[in-house]
Amino acid sequence: MRTPFTDVFDVEHPIVQGGMQWVGRAPLVAAVANAGALGMLTALTQPTPEALAQEIARTRELTDKPFGVNLTILPSITPPPYEEYRQVIIESGVKIVETAGSNPAPHLPSFHAAGVKVLHKCTSVRHAVKAQEVGVDGISIDGFECAGHPGEDDVPGLVLIAAAAEQITIPMIASGGFGDGRGLVAALALGADGINMGTRFMCTEEAPIHRNIKEAIVAGKETDTELIFRPLRNTARVARNTVSREVVDILNRGGRFPDVQALVAGSRGRLVFENGDTEAGIWTVGTVQGIIHDIPTVGELVERIVAEAEGLISRRLAGMLAPVSV
């Protein structure tokens, strides 16, 4: 299945495993690459730039196919050394980067000088257009269904992808709510050149998270997520549990971030993935969990999605066309 995305980013299938904090590690990324899709290491999962260099090397021991690194750049009082992480990516010879969080323009000259292609994640058409204007190589447009931060416009993918496709001329992949071949075909029909999946790749054998969390995703429904930080205009979609419900309640009663800071600590979310206690903290998951029913290997998943998409296009959809009378 060839698209502008597979051509520009040099992958076999138009499927991306997006960067996920605590999840985007070597075993998963290498498995995705070996399956012919594009895997993304998560730079800030690694505590230092030096640790990222080691994780890149570890990934290379497991695959000889292309993979990328996600570098999420967020404003902070004490920001991580983003320039040092960037330099490690360049010096390690990685040729694909997924940026997110803020304007990628300050990083583009260094990446492009090193021959690195930049895929920028956006949650609105206006931000996608701006990223295209500053010179990124591809867009990942993130609909409201997604895990993590969906932005503040609340536009689902069905409209967002089509609206973005009207203005984006570089390769664009669709994110948020994708987990099978039906979603891939829908994204292509809406004007995207592929799909990005997070939650679906979390629920695979190779994902480096506790089995309990994978089973919780299989058991979860599309309604079993919570939107936290809405009053703070920093919305995030996470699993519904006692912690996320408490955060929503506190903020809805006028609380501010310091009132929930201890509840949403990243260290607690990391423990969820390590220990398998779904109530230990905040952890991200998308509404797509409602159509996730198993825990396959990455290879099985990618093969299934591609086969299902090809079958839908060649048989079901083609069969709906009335024969042309001569």
Results as ranks from 00 to 15, higher is better:
residue 158 L to M: 15
residue 20 M to L: 10
residue 119 L to D: 07
residue 286 G to F: 13
residue 301 L to M: 15
residue 169 T to W: 09
residue 252 N to H: 13
residue 83 E to D: 15
residue 47 P to E: 14
residue 318 A to C: 03
residue 25 R to P: 00
residue 280 A to E: 01
residue 187 A to E: 09
residue 64 D to K: 15
residue 106 P to W: 13
residue 134 V to R: 02
residue 45 T to Q: 05
residue 129 V to D: 02
residue 86 R to F: 01
residue 221 K to M: 12
residue 166 E to R: 15
residue 291 I to S: 13
residue 323 P to H: 10
residue 46 Q to C: 15
residue 60 R to N: 12
residue 219 A to Q: 15
residue 36 G to R: 05
residue 124 S to G: 06
residue 204 T to G: 02
residue 137 D to C: 03
residue 27 P to Q: 11
residue 110 S to W: 08
residue 165 A to H: 14
residue 288 V to N: 05
residue 250 I to P: 14
residue 290 G to S: 06
residue 168 I to S: 01
residue 320 M to E: 12
residue 158 L to A: 14
residue 36 G to P: 02
residue 218 V to I: 15
residue 292 I to W: 04
residue 119 L to I: 04
residue 75 P to I: 08
residue 132 Q to F: 11
residue 136 V to R: 06
residue 286 G to P: 14
residue 64 D to V: 11
residue 223 T to F: 05
residue 165 A to N: 14
residue 237 R to Y: 11
residue 157 G to Y: 07
residue 59 T to R: 01
residue 37 A to Q: 02
residue 291 I to D: 04
residue 30 A to Y: 06
residue 134 V to A: 01
residue 209 I to M: 00
residue 21 Q to A: 13
residue 93 G to A: 09
residue 274 E to M: 05
residue 151 G to E: 08
residue 293 H to G: 12
residue 9 F to N: 12
residue 108 L to N: 06
residue 270 R to I: 10
residue 192 A to L: 03
residue 326 V to F: 15
residue 174 A to E: 09
residue 3 T to Y: 07
residue 152 E to L: 10
residue 273 F to W: 12
residue 324 V to Q: 10
residue 189 A to F: 08
residue 98 E to V: 06
residue 274 E to A: 09
residue 98 E to Q: 13
residue 73 I to A: 00
residue 124 S to N: 09
residue 280 A to W: 00
residue 124 S to Q: 06
residue 145 E to S: 05
residue 14 P to N: 04
residue 31 A to L: 04
residue 34 N to P: 07
residue 277 D to Y: 05
residue 112 H to C: 00
residue 106 P to I: 11
residue 194 G to K: 02
residue 98 E to R: 03
residue 27 P to F: 10
residue 42 T to S: 11
residue 197 M to Y: 01
residue 230 R to W: 07
residue 271 L to R: 15
residue 257 F to D: 05
residue 313 I to E: 09
residue 286 G to V: 14
residue 42 T to P: 02
residue 152 E to V: 12
residue 93 G to P: 14
residue 257 F to G: 02
residue 148 G to W: 14
residue 56 I to L: 10
residue 204 T to R: 01
residue 108 L to P: 07
residue 119 L to P: 12
residue 17 Q to W: 04
residue 123 T to H: 03
residue 269 G to R: 11
residue 129 V to M: 11
residue 15 I to A: 01
residue 242 T to F: 00
residue 14 P to G: 03
residue 59 T to A: 00
residue 210 H to P: 00
residue 114 A to W: 09
residue 179 G to W: 06
residue 93 G to W: 14
residue 264 V to K: 02
residue 314 S to N: 14
residue 285 V to S: 13
residue 105 A to S: 07
residue 163 A to N: 13
residue 279 E to S: 00
residue 70 N to I: 09
residue 228 I to Y: 02
residue 271 L to A: 15
residue 174 A to T: 04
residue 143 G to S: 10
residue 240 R to P: 04
residue 49 P to K: 11
residue 16 V to S: 04
residue 205 E to H: 08
residue 117 K to R: 09
residue 227 L to V: 10
residue 16 V to E: 07
